[in-house]
């Protein structure tokens, strides 16, 4: 195999990695807001339930969660939904990632919302803003500014975490490299995968820094 062939084969695996990355973000960022609303709810049962769930998800390995999502429907319902679907393995991995990251994001959101001072709410109230207006015009912009750095950390971790999907046989870039290893007895492609992660994370970090700079026109 030539270098180009290997690069192309690894890229096809990396495509899966990127798709998993992007879709996880698209679903987990908004879902995190909903989880956050639950964990800050004044309705106690909902709050305890949500916080308990977040505790379980953050307290157990993501790899284990991948197994649970993939195998449990088949075991409990006698219906191996993810094994029978065409892209079932990918969907199972996506589901596990979305749930896991939504929980992490929800805690970051909660920290961001709680850090907005009481004075901002009071100033909004005396100016006659509704609760919705206060949240969307006053609180949320400040929360976004505050959470960009911690969210950025999670995003970079997510790029690397996607490689865990291989435990339920989602063919990511590392799995492609292992195939090359077993078929062609070449080990260097395995190490070469690191370059893909590094370059992509370089782009992600750069974009995040640009975003932070764009929000730097004011201080809280």
């Amino acid at each position: 195999m030539t270098f180009t062939q290997i690069t192309l084969q690894l890229l096809s695996g990396f495509g899966t990695t990127l798709l998993l990355f992007v879709l996880t973000l698209v679903f987990s960022l908004p879902l995190g807001l909903a989880v956050c609303a639950g964990s800050m709810s004044r309705f106690k049962p909902l709050r305890f339930l949500t916080r308990g769930f977040v505790w379980v998800i953050r307290g157990t390995p993501l790899m284990l969660q991948l197994f649970v999502v993939f195998y449990v429907p088949g075991m409990l319902l006698n219906w191996p939904i993810f094994a029978s679907l065409r892209h079932g393995r990918f969907i199972a991995a996506l589901l596990a990632f979305v749930i896991n990251y939504a929980c992490y994001f929800s805690e970051i959101y909660r920290g961001g919302i709680e850090s907005v001072s009481q004075g901002q709410y009071e100033a909004s109230a005396v100016l006659g803003l509704t609760k919705g207006q206060t949240f969307f015009h006053i609180v949320l912009p400040q929360v976004i500014k505050r959470i960009v750095p911690p969210i950025g950390n999670e995003v970079i971790t997510l790029v690397k975490d996607t490689s865990l999907a291989r435990v339920i046989a989602v063919v990511d870039i590392i799995m492609e490299a292992e195939t090359i290893l077993s078929l062609h007895a070449l080990i260097w492609p395995l190490f070469y995968t690191g370059v893909f992660f590094l370059v992509f994370n370089g782009i992600v970090s750069f974009s995040l820094r640009k975003l932070e700079q764009r929000l730097d026109y004011y201080k809280i």
């Binding site: 001072s117 004075g119 901002q120 009071e122 100033a123 109230a125 005396v126 100016l127 006659g128 509704t130 609760k131 006053i138 912009p141 400040q142 500014k145 004011y218 201080k219 809280i220």
Partner: peptide
Amino acid sequence: KPSELRKKRMKMGLVFQSYNLFPQ
């Protein structure tokens, strides 16, 4: 009701000790 309260409270204005301007 919250909507009535909002209308009535706008008859009063308040300037805070710590300004509480919206930073953004």
